[in-house]
Nucleic acid binder design. Structure first.
Lengths: 226, 226
DNA sequence: ATTGTGGATACTGTATACAATCTGCGGCGG
DNA sequence: CCGCCGCAGATTGTATACAGTATCCACAAT
């Protein structure tokens, strides 16, 4: 045949994306961006009308978000954005210190050249983001931490770290704590440096310190809100 | 009024339990008990007929189990019991070593007298279970480890440990690795002893060793199956 | 014999209909 | 004025109906 062969590399030829997945992604971003405040209610009919779909995919997306811990469901009373208590926030940070430390250590030991590039790019983008752009900063901060867990090359760790990151995002919005802390940039740099140097112990220590610093800041703000 | 006051302690007066929750609990137990082998398909209509409910609550339960990582969904092709690869199993155990160690350390530091009782009871029940009763042993082993995370008094840790335990349960069924390893009982005893002695470091070390031992066993069996 | 094609079947994805529960308000009685 | 009852509206929970897609097998063409 004389026809040129199809180039399939990198094109997904418009796979039939499911409605419920689209709704899930949308709502997840809305919550993570802080557009819906903790405690706010998500009505099924209202969401359906706003997104132009029926209640069925809406409900399935909400179910998944509940399982993620981003929303809470009460029988016959719908779902709301989860409100983290001070104790839940502290708990999340205790675990996150351990998991982020592990992720950094593994990333130091196992990252590929492509991972290294992704890490450098992610941190550069984060540092280049303009002050006051909280939403952008929050997303880029999340992207940097995701790049670290990506470099750890551990599926279970990625999944669990994703869970924790989402909960922490909720706390941040709740306490209105953003990444403006002066030490943040230096700590990020220290983590990246240790990972690139393949110094697992140093990377773990730097990551744990970063979590502790941020946790203290958030818990302080949480205390003030109470 | 002369009528005697109602005693509400401990009775839930037949609250209208949701169908989807019942289906979720049922299917979760079925998978965790190993009655459905990895790769096996779960048809919605078939489940609906078997349980006597419509597809709607079935789908919502399946959605939650997919999010839990127990099932995998493929677009327009239904859901199957997840098959863990050797790499995924190794990943899960790496993370579990860290989290179980943390849980044991926290439990040593923070457990209440009631937690202590629960721990002792759980281990006793496990040791008393007859050999060969794999399903019972698996459940009791899971209960013991749950008692530890319970003693840690950390909600986020409980949630994440639950996720990992479920994945590990999948691996166990897949490799047909049960708790018969001779060192298991001694290691369990060591963990319990350290926790009750409030020795966090020792508890962490004992828990990590236990995970490593078991992981090695499972990975060995996984290699043989390949 | 093998490959490709067509259609029939079964199943998932989405929408809609029906049932049950919660919520808020107005009226009635104390 | 306060509290309680009860109804009406709205919302969630479940069931069913409809649409789109994958799978399988028969059968024809090479």
């Amino acid at each position: 045949m004389s026809l040129p062969a199809l180039n399939l590399s990198g094109l997904s030829f418009a796979r039939p994306t499911l409605v419920r997945d689209g709704v899930y992604d949308h709502l997840r971003r809305v919550v993570l961006d802080g557009d819906l405040l903790p405690g706010e209610r998500l009505g099924e009919v209202e969401l359906g009308e706003k997104l132009g779909v029926s209640r069925t995919p809406i409900r399935e997306a909400l179910m998944r978000l509940v399982q993620d811990g981003l929303l809470v469901a009460e029988a016959n009373k719908g779902v709301r954005v989860r409100t983290m208590t001070a104790a839940e926030a502290r708990d999340a940070y205790v675990v996150r210190e351990e998991l982020d430390g592990l992720a950094a250590a593994l990333a130091a030991a196992q990252h590929t050249p492509a991972d290294a590039d992704a890490l450098r790019t992610a941190l550069h983008d984060l540092n280049a983001s303009p002050d006051g752009e909280y939403r952008t900063q929050t997303r880029l901060d999340l992207a940097f931490h995701r790049a670290i867990t990506q470099g750890a090359r551990n599926g279970a760790l990625s999944d669990l770290a994703r869970d924790l990151e989402q909960r922490v995002a909720l706390i941040k919005h709740q306490t209105r704590t953003y990444n403006a802390h002066p030490e943040t940039a230096a700590q990020h740099a220290a983590i990246l440096k240790a990972i690139l140097a393949r110094d697992a112990d140093q990377a773990r220590a730097a990551a744990r310190l970063h979590v502790r610093t941020f946790a203290a800041l958030v818990m302080h703000n949480l205390g003030e809100l109470a």
